[in-house]
């Protein structure tokens, strides 16, 4: 652990009334001159997911323009997301000035504090009541910091295998961490998340035998949903398999 350089995380929270949307444009299908009152159909066709998708596309353009390689790390609470970010930061200590971490959490700065111990710049985004990071929060976090030296952006999402699947952030890659301690059904129960992912890290493999979880089966479940998924097996705590993940990320 580097002693000479400790970073303190910046903390970002959502604005009040963040949920404004583009103005709706309807079409009037009713009669043109109502005598007294009438019921009309008004077409809205307003897609609430489109706004986030548009912001995510803007984020990706921004990353491309500034040469920042971005990954979105997802997974349940306790699967090993923060440990993976710590391990990447430690192994890339010689490039730590190029690394920026955005850590998403509902209310605490525990994750960002842990990561900042590795000497990398860290922004804590507290979502307040929300269960996921969205593209707007990422945009806002990026405005809070000088990105001149940044080449690698690691986004650690809120611990949740459900909601973040609905909210792309504009990252180059989506990496999901599952651990054998979550039991044998995590992948089958959350198929959308794995369908959307590029990389799967199966963590805590040193505990697979104790947990009586078949790692081969986990991998088969994931590949069944998403044949293009690239799968790694790790024990981040025991430093098994992490270097292969970093190599694949292209950092």
């Amino acid at each position: 652990m580097p002693e000479d350089k400790k970073e303190k995380p910046i903390v970002i929270t959502p604005d009040e009334g963040e949920h404004h949307h583009d103005h709706a444009h309807g079409h009037h299908h009713g009669h043109s001159h109502p005598p007294s009152s009438e019921t009309v159909d008004i077409t809205l066709e307003e897609n609430f997911m489109e706004r986030n998708k548009k912001l995510a596309r803007n984020n990706l353009q921004f990353f491309e323009k500034h040469g920042i390689r971005t990954i979105n790390i997802l997974g349940s609470v306790g699967s090993g997301k923060t440990s993976l970010v710590e391990a990447i930061s430690r192994k890339l200590a010689h490039r730590r000035d190029e690394i920026l971490v955005i850590a998403g959490d509902v209310t605490t700065t525990i994750d960002a504090d842990r990561i900042a111990q590795q000497g990398v710049r860290t922004i804590q985004v507290n979502t307040g009541v929300e269960c996921h990071l969205d593209a707007k929060l990422i945009q806002k976090a990026l405005q809070s910091i000088d990105l001149a030296s940044t080449k690698i952006l690691i986004i650690e999402n809120v611990g949740n295998l459900i909601c973040p699947a609905d909210f792309p952030l504009g990252s180059h890659l989506r990496l999901v961490v599952v651990s054998v301690t979550e039991g044998p059904w995590m992948i089958q129960k959350h198929p959308v998340m794995f369908h959307e992912a590029d990389i799967l890290v199966i963590n805590k493999i040193d505990l697979a035998e104790v947990m009586e979880v078949d790692v081969d089966q986990l991998e088969r479940d994931a590949k069944q949903i998403n044949p293009k998924l690239v799968v790694f097996r790790t024990s981040i705590r025991k430093d098994i398999g992490v270097e292969a993940v970093i190599e694949h990320l292209g950092f």
């Binding site: 009309v40 809205l44 066709e45 307003e46 609430f48």
Partner: peptide, 13 residues
Amino acid sequence: RECVVKDIQAVIG
């Protein structure tokens, strides 16, 4: 993956 408000029925007048 959509969540769309397709249309509304409204009383005018």
